[in-house]
């Protein structure tokens, strides 16, 4: 029996999203729905298409074909109003290193029109345990501190939709654990829909309600992390990742034959 549809509001939806680069499909008829209060993990090896998907969803890259809607509105035509209700954080972007942390955060608070920005910034910095960094030069922060400052920026406008691109990349296990816990805590408290990419399967297991595995731009499988491991011929999510990255499929050939019988 097919799973019953999720009754929660659809926050982000892609329908048959395809993106070609020089005739090569980086995304191939990619469709998914992200619901309010859900954390969806987008997984795949390098080149699987998750960054392209994220870029299309952020409006940074235009899809070759397909539809993208956020909050029920077409993304391209309503980009500004959608971005006002969303936010983004990536391990690969930075806030200007030559400004103090509070200066950077004040700029973004102003862009998003955050009421009472000083209070908001102070609250979020306390939540992420970085209040002491307020007057530090952003460029002199450690990777862990920098990630948490980026997360403060990402939570500034109380987003309903948050896109996190490998937020724990280059963090030590202790800081990565703290980041995961804070993301989960804020997400639950505010019922945020999060699209999450990571190469760290521990991240995925702890943070994501549901995951989609991509291979060569196509969805190989989707479900809860536990369901996917149960469906596969692997023992854990990390092995599933490796299996899909190498073979492009979830199951070993013999298992497929067995299930066909």
């Amino acid at each position: 029996m097919p799973p019953s549809p999720d009754p929660r509001e659809v926050i982000l939806e892609a329908r048959d999203l395809t993106r070609e680069f020089d005739g090569v499909k980086a995304l191939d008829s990619f469709s998914f729905k992200l619901h309010r209060g859900e954390v969806l993990g987008l997984l795949g090896a390098n080149g699987a298409g998750k960054t392209t998907a994220m870029n299309c969803l952020l409006g940074l890259t235009l899809p070759t074909s397909g539809e993208l809607n956020a909050f029920g509105l077409p993304l391209q035509a309503n980009r500004i109003s959608i971005l006002q209700r969303s936010n983004f954080s990536s391990a690969y972007t930075a806030l200007p290193g030559n400004l103090l942390v509070w200066q950077n955060l004040s700029v973004f608070a102003r862009i998003y029109g955050v009421p009472n920005p000083k209070k908001k910034i102070a609250e979020l910095m306390e939540l992420l345990e970085i209040s002491h960094l307020s007057k530090r030069v952003t460029g002199q922060l450690s990777a862990g501190e920098s990630t948490r400052v980026n997360l403060v920026k990402a939570f500034l406008n109380d987003p309903e939709l948050l896109m996190l691109d490998e937020p724990t990349a280059s963090l030590d296990p202790d800081i990565a654990d703290k980041v995961r816990k804070v993301v989960r805590k804020v997400q639950r408290e505010r019922n945020i829909a999060i699209l999450y990419t990571s190469h760290n399967m521990r991240d995925i297991e702890e943070v994501c309600d549901r995951v989609i595995f991509l291979h060569k731009g196509k969805i190989v499988c989707e479900g809860t992390p536990a369901d996917i491991v149960a469906q596969s011929s692997s023992d854990n999510l990390e092995d599933v990742f490796i299996k899909i990255a190498r073979d492009g499929e979830l199951l070993d050939e013999p298992k497929k034959e067995e299930s066909a019988l």
């Binding site: 500004i80 006002q84 930075a94 806030l95 200007p96």
Partner: peptide, 14 residues
């Protein structure tokens, strides 16, 4: 230079 461009382009900035 400060790798901030992406933050600007994904913010509600026309």
């Amino acid at each position: 230079w400060t790798r901030n461009l992406l933050n600007i382009f994904v913010a509600p900035v026309r």
